Every structure is written in structure tokens, then in C-alpha cells.
Amino acid sequence: MNTDTAGYRLEGDGADIRSLPKVSLHDHLDGGLRPQTVIELADEIGFEVPAADAASLADWFAERSDSGELVEYLKTFDVTTAVMQTRAGLERVARESVLDLAADGVVYGELRWAPEQHQVRGLGLDEVVEAVQAGIDAGIDEAASQGRGIRIGQLVTAMRHADRALEIAELAVRHRDRGVVGFDIAGAEAGFLPSRHRTAFDYLASQFFPVTVHAGEADGLESIRSALLDGRALRLGHGVRIAEDVTVEREDDENTYVTLGLLSQWVRDRGIALETSPSSNLQTGAIAAWGDDLVDHPFDLLYQLGFNVTVNTDNRLQSGTSLSRELALLADAFGYDLDDLETFQLNAAEAAFLPVEEREELAELIEDGFDAA
């Protein structure tokens, strides 16, 4: 893989990954701030940040996020959420996030965030959702003026360690025709199974409202099982630890046998999308059972076995990344070509929380863009 000012280019055909149409399903709004924006918003509210300039602050986020543990990784969000407590701050972060995604070639994205974490300065739940949507709309309009078309949906998220899931689920449904396309639970995964929020998931199911659940990142198969059974999840946030239910046996250099457990076979056979985030999965230790390098990530195993894998950033700030970079890293690690990258985008388009007609239009847009590459 080579890099240049035009972006990341694939070995062989030299396709510029940044110019390809892409779909981002797992991108945290409070994990995608520009470092300079953090500094400026912090100055406006009198909040002290860990570094005085953008480059140093970016380094701080990268260092703190590379802990190998999700709980430590999540502590960096104390800084980002602190500067997202006003209407103006939320609008700015949302607008810039859309612009940054569009500049990276994303044509459809879902931004997830937890409204309950943005009420410190007195904003109501509906007010924070409206502020984020105003920023998203402004970003879409600005991107269009720059010749970049992009669509964005909100994924309203409840914190799994708190007791507000039903309230947040009702909030999401109230805004389903005003930008919110789905629901999620996030936060420290181990010890907080989705079953804790069964009432909220029952309500969402009664409203036919789409759900994705963080599962299989910092906890294993029981978390995934609960996401599917209790949460009725249509997608799994990360989901990489579903590979714990896959047995690989090598008898010799030429013969390898793979056996799927009931859970992994269900996820594969039903096409339940895995929202993998390679760099983040390394930082949080989600793939520690397989190794500590990207080539050890079970992504390729799952892909070769026919799982519905998608590629995402999780948190662009903490991982110092972009969707193009994540795709380039995977291509470098596993020798993927343009057809593979197109498959990942079509997988994501099919799993997007959009009506089927709009998903088909999105798939056509992706196919046309890759054909022209």
C-alpha cells in the first residue's frame, strides 16, 4: 500500500480508496471531533484540555486510547463530551463530522451518540437531538456545495450501565421521521448484558424500530447472544468475538477444517452484519485472543467463511483514522483488491437502516463508483 496526497491507493490497480463511494455504519459522533475544535470549544466554556495545540492533543488521544482495554479507552470521551454540552457545540461537531466523512468519500453514514451524556448544561433530550440534526443538515448542505453528496442518519444510543434505556428508546422513536434511523446501546460491555434493557428493546420491537447493539467487543458470546435474543439486534456493533464460536482445525499444510457453533452459524446464515472497526479493535483488546497485530484480526477468517462483514472507524479521533485508512490497512494486511473493498461497501449498504428501495439505490451508487475506479 502506498500513500500520497490524493489518498490511499491499492497495490496493483492503483485505485484511490478515498475517491471510492463508501458506507460508514459505526461512527461515534463524540469520537470524531477535530482536535482544534476540541480546543476551541473547551476555551469557550472554560474547560481545561490535556494539551494546548491540536497536534499534541491528537497525540494525547492516540496514546490514551491505545491501552488494550475498553474501559480505559472510554475515559478519553470525558474530554470530548465535555465540549458537547451546548447547542452551538453540538451543531458544530455534527456539521464538521459530516464534512469530514464526505471528504473521505463516504456517501452514506450513521452517526451514533448518547443524548443522555449531553445534558450537563441544561439541554433537554429533544433539544440535543435537534441540535445534532441541525448540524448534520448544515454539513450535508455544505458538502453538497463542494460537490460531495452524502446522506447521514442518527443512531440514538443509551448507555448500557445506566437506567434510561426506555426513555432514550422513546426519544429515538419520537425523532424517527426527523433524522433518527436506529437505536443502540454502548459503554462498558462486560457485566452489562443487553438483557438489562429488555423493556426498552420490547418497546422498540413494538414500534418496528431498527436496533444495533454493541456486542462481542469487550465481552464474548453471551453478550452477542443477549444482543440477538433480548435486543433483537439486526447488526452487531463490532461483533468480532463471534469468532470465539468458530473452531479451526489444521490437520496438515493443505487441509483445514472449520466448524461453526450454533450462535456463529445463526449470525452467518441470517446475514447479521458485523460492524468491525479494525484499528479500534486492536486498541481496546477486542482481538487479544488472536494476537496484537492487524494480520491477527479474525476479520479475514469471518469474511472467507461468508459472514456479513463491514468496515468502520468506530472513533476517528481516538484511532487517528478514517474509513479509507481502515480499508487500506485491511487491504495491506490481507491482500484485498478492489472487488473485496466493493463487497464490504455493498454489505454495509444492505445493512443500512434505510428502506429497501433506498438501499438498492445506495448499492447502485457504490457499484457505479467502483466501476469507474
Rank of each mutant, 00 (worst) to 15 (best):
E142H: 09
D163S: 15
A134Y: 04
R121M: 15
G153L: 14
A144S: 13
S67E: 01
A131M: 01
R160A: 12
W113T: 02
G124C: 05
L111N: 02
H161C: 06
T76D: 02
M159R: 13
L155Q: 07
A58D: 11
G105T: 09
E63P: 00
R164A: 11
Q133P: 07
A134V: 03
T86F: 01
M84R: 00
P115H: 09
G122K: 11
A143S: 15
L125H: 13
A165E: 12
Q133H: 13
L70R: 08
R64I: 01
E72C: 02
D141E: 15
L123W: 00
R160N: 11
H161N: 10
G68A: 11
G122T: 09
D141M: 03
L166H: 10
K75N: 03
Q133M: 15
V120A: 12
L99A: 06
L101F: 09
E63A: 14
E72N: 10
E96N: 11
A82D: 02
G68D: 09
Q154M: 14
G122E: 11
V98T: 04
A158P: 08
Y73D: 04
A134D: 14
K75F: 05
H118M: 02
T86L: 01
D78Y: 04
V128E: 07
L90K: 04
Q117T: 12
T80K: 03
S145W: 06
D66F: 12
I150A: 01
R112W: 09
E69H: 14
D104C: 06
R151F: 07
A88R: 14
T80A: 06
E72M: 11
Q117S: 10
T80V: 06
G109V: 03
D78W: 02
D59I: 11
K75P: 03
V120D: 05
A94W: 00
A103Q: 13
T76W: 00
E116P: 05
A162Y: 14
L125D: 12
I136F: 09
V79N: 00
G105L: 11
Q119M: 15
A134P: 09
L155G: 01
V132D: 00
A165F: 10
V98A: 03
T86C: 00
G139V: 01
L70C: 11
R92G: 01
Q133D: 13
R87Q: 12
L101K: 12
D66A: 14
